[in-house]
Design a protein around this nucleic acid. Structure first.
Lengths: 145, 145
DNA sequence: CTTTAAATAGAAATCGTTTCTATTAAGAGA
DNA sequence: TCTCTTAATAGAAACGATTTCTATTTAAAG
């Protein structure tokens, strides 16, 4: 099943979050452009539209969306918040590739962690519980350009 | 070669950083306990010693150390700064395992990235340039307890 | 419609981090 | 060992991302 405004609305309802114009505006924006945004960028984009939100509201909306898995947070070296709407909406564990040119994010279907976990646990004699894995580079579209 | 106060001092000299009591105090502290610290924690520990530093100085010292590769920064979900002194001082690319109990950090000798890079590049038709990889769990010492 | 709890605005606070300026001290050279 | 230059440090202040607070508005259940 592909992600759409309707599936997002359904996800809000499933989590008893009200379907408000501001929330829809944020979702619509994230759906239109599949890249990551800072809360301030979202705020800026919605300014001067009929569904602009205050900056604190944007923060809250994005945090709520993140809490229900509607959006995903990524890691950046500036240690600030960035969110995007992942096309891999199934909720299955996966990782992301971020294009440093266009800031779009691609899900990586295969997680290689299981195959190396045992090696690492043996090497360290530790119990590995979680991992962070994220890739950066240049995406197909930006390369052919 | 193992890491020691002397090898740290040599590294300061190599990078024309002066060997000051405050810098030595930070190094000594990080050497004694191989876990990660926030700048504030370092500041706190040095308070009421003969080599205490102001908080801005601690931030600067840790940033300088990080810039010359003497300390390493880790990622945490609270998006704040944390540094530790890695026993793997060779400078070769490697990753880290963080114990969520004792906050100690272990280097992982083998990086599995090269073996999966091609798979990912083929899957995405992208050029992968860098990656973040970090593990968390319970270390050997904390498990046997 | 009414009602109620959730959502939002906007101001203000918070807090990790950085900047600024005056002072101190490391260490190179005499 | 002494002097001098420049880097290091202290402490106050600023900064800026994020959160909190309170009053107001609104979604949506009944």
């Amino acid at each position: 099943m592909d992600i759409s405004i309707d599936s997002c609305i359904a996800q809000l309802r499933r989590n008893t979050l009200k379907v408000t114009p501001r929330r829809l505006a944020v979702i619509t924006m994230l759906l239109a452009e599949r890249r990551y945004f800072s809360p301030y960028e979202v705020y800026e984009r919605l300014l001067n539209t009929d569904c602009s939100s205050g900056l604190p509201s944007v923060y809250r909306i994005l945090q709520e969306f993140s809490a229900i898995g509607l959006v995903t947070e990524i890691e950046r070296s500036d240690r600030q918040q960035y969110y995007f709407l992942c096309k891999e909406s199934s909720g299955a564990h996966h990782h992301h590739f971020i294009c440093r040119i266009c800031c779009r994010v691609e899900p990586i279907k295969k997680c290689f962690f299981d195959s190396v976990k045992k090696h690492i646990e043996t090497e360290l004699d530790a119990q590995v519980e979680s991992h962070i894995f994220q890739l950066e580079g240049i995406c197909a579209s930006c390369r052919n350009h």
